[in-house]
């Protein structure tokens, strides 16, 4: 079951580069949030109740419900529908993402270690690298938030790969920190939408001397 979920997760990364509509990106984030919950739940079923509640909060509640709802609100406020402004054609993006996944498998082979679960590790690394690539090829700052959230999903998978469970209070602080960061990033997107003509990084070049 875990393997199936991870494969679907990797496929969702490929689909991310095919999609052009903002609503599709948000739906993909919801799917990834649910997949992360299933994977984490099965993998960590034996841990204490507080740990499980934490994972439920982080994946289902925050990643699959709160953040997507917030992003949808942002999308409607800024009237964003289709953002076909990638710097690279979709075809090449898919090829690069495929190469990223292959590189992640090779990297996984090199860091083979008794403490690491390779199946999580490879998908985590490809998700992080895919998220960075997604940010690089898009000019729109809304897409940058999507890329940032994908990197966050990769970090969550990596935490499963390394298997170390952090104390409840620390995990809670990390979660709240991230949630606040995303919400504040959203608030600033709204302000940029009000101040500048478009939500593109090309508008944000005034401060350079």
């Amino acid at each position: 079951m875990i393997l199936v979920c991870l494969i679907i997760f990797a496929v969702s990364m490929m689909y991310l580069f095919l999609a052009e509509r903002i609503s599709k990106y948000i739906n993909l984030l919801i799917v990834q949030g649910i997949l992360l919950f299933i994977v984490a739940f099965i993998n960590l079923i034996e841990i204490n109740t507080l740990g499980l509640i934490m994972i439920l909060l982080e994946t289902l509640l925050v990643k699959a419900i709160i953040i997507p709802r917030f992003l949808n609100k942002l999308r409607r406020t800024n009237n964003l529908k289709r953002l076909d402004e990638s710097k690279i054609p979709t075809f090449y993006s898919i090829i690069i993402m495929t190469i990223i996944i292959i590189i992640s498998f090779i990297a996984g082979y090199f860091v083979k270690n008794q403490f690491i679960q390779l199946k999580f590790f490879t998908v985590a690394i490809s998700t992080v690298m895919g998220g960075i690539f997604f940010i690089i090829i898009h000019k729109n700052i809304f897409n940058h938030i999507v890329g940032f959230l994908i990197i966050e999903n990769g970090a969550f998978l990596l935490s499963l790969a390394v298997g170390g469970e952090f104390p409840f209070l620390v995990s809670l602080a990390v979660l709240i920190d991230l949630l606040i960061a995303v919400l504040i990033i959203g608030v600033f997107v709204n302000k940029i939408g009000d101040t500048f003509e478009e939500l593109s990084i090309t508008s944000l070049t005034h401060i350079k001397d």
Binding site: I151, A181, I184, I185, F188, I192, T195, L204
Partner: peptide, 18 residues
């Protein structure tokens, strides 16, 4: 300019922190 700088700092900093 402050909005632009704040956005860049927030986003890149959050990225760096991740």
């Amino acid at each position: 300019d402050a909005l632009e700088a704040a956005w860049k700092y927030l986003f890149i900093s959050s990225f760096g922190i991740t």
